[in-house]
Computed example of a mutant assay.
Amino acid sequence: MEVSRSKKGIFISQRKFVLGILKDGGCLGAKPVNFPMEQNVKFSDEGDLLKDPSSYRRLVGGLIYLTVTHPDITYSVHILSRFMHAPRKPHMEAAMRILRYLKNNPGQGLFFSSQNDLSLRAFCDSD
């Protein structure tokens, strides 16, 4: 984790880790996407099993670690983590899409303002 402190507040990111996971996944030259997962995708235990499930498990494990500073991928990673025992080709394709989403802004992180009233505010788009 990278932590930057200034008079405005504290910024926490995992830029170096994101770039490393993009390199390991071979996505440094891939076209970025705007959303981590396609809408209305249904995953199941159908499709071809991956020949090497350890690469999927390593990738999803890294994505789980990234959810600390990237809460926007939490739901997508949660869905993919349910298939760690027997990952299939569609699951790996969805994990690669998350990487392409992260490529859009690898330096994204959390900012904690020093001028904060410490009240919790959240937004949820249920559509």
Rank of each mutant, 00 (worst) to 15 (best):
L50F: 07
N116K: 02
S6I: 09
V18W: 02
L118W: 01
M92V: 00
S126R: 08
R58C: 12
R82G: 15
S44V: 02
D48N: 14
S55H: 10
K31F: 04
S76M: 03
I10G: 06
L22M: 12
G29S: 14
I64L: 15
E38R: 06
R58H: 10
L102R: 03
F112C: 01
F43E: 04
S113N: 09
V41R: 13
R15H: 13
F123C: 13
H85V: 12
Q39S: 14
S4Y: 12
K23R: 09
S4V: 13
D127I: 01
Y56S: 08
L49W: 04
S54G: 04
G9F: 03
L99P: 08
L66T: 11
A30K: 05
G20K: 10
S81F: 01
S81T: 06
S4F: 12
G61D: 11
Q115A: 13
N40T: 06
Y65H: 15
S55G: 03
K103C: 06
H91P: 01
Q108A: 13
N34S: 15
I79E: 07
L80S: 08
C124M: 05
V60P: 11
G107I: 06
L49S: 15
Y65W: 12
Y65A: 12
P53Y: 07
V18Y: 01
C27G: 10
S54P: 08
V77Y: 05
R82E: 14
Q14V: 06
T69D: 08
D117H: 07
I12T: 02
K89W: 00
Q39C: 10
K51G: 11
M37E: 02
M1V: 14
Y75W: 13
G26Y: 05
N40M: 04
I12P: 00
T67A: 13
K31L: 12
I73W: 09
R82A: 13
I64E: 09
G62A: 08
A95T: 03
K7P: 07
L99C: 02
L28M: 14
P53M: 04
M92E: 07
R97E: 05
G109F: 01
T67D: 10
T69L: 07
D72I: 11
N40W: 00
M37Q: 12
S4L: 14
F35G: 02
S13Y: 07
S76N: 12
V18E: 00
V41F: 00
V60M: 10
D127R: 05
R121K: 14
S126N: 08
L118V: 09
G109N: 05
Q115R: 06
A122K: 03
A94K: 04
R58L: 09
E2F: 05
F17Q: 11
F35M: 14
A86L: 10
Q108C: 03
D24T: 01
G25P: 07
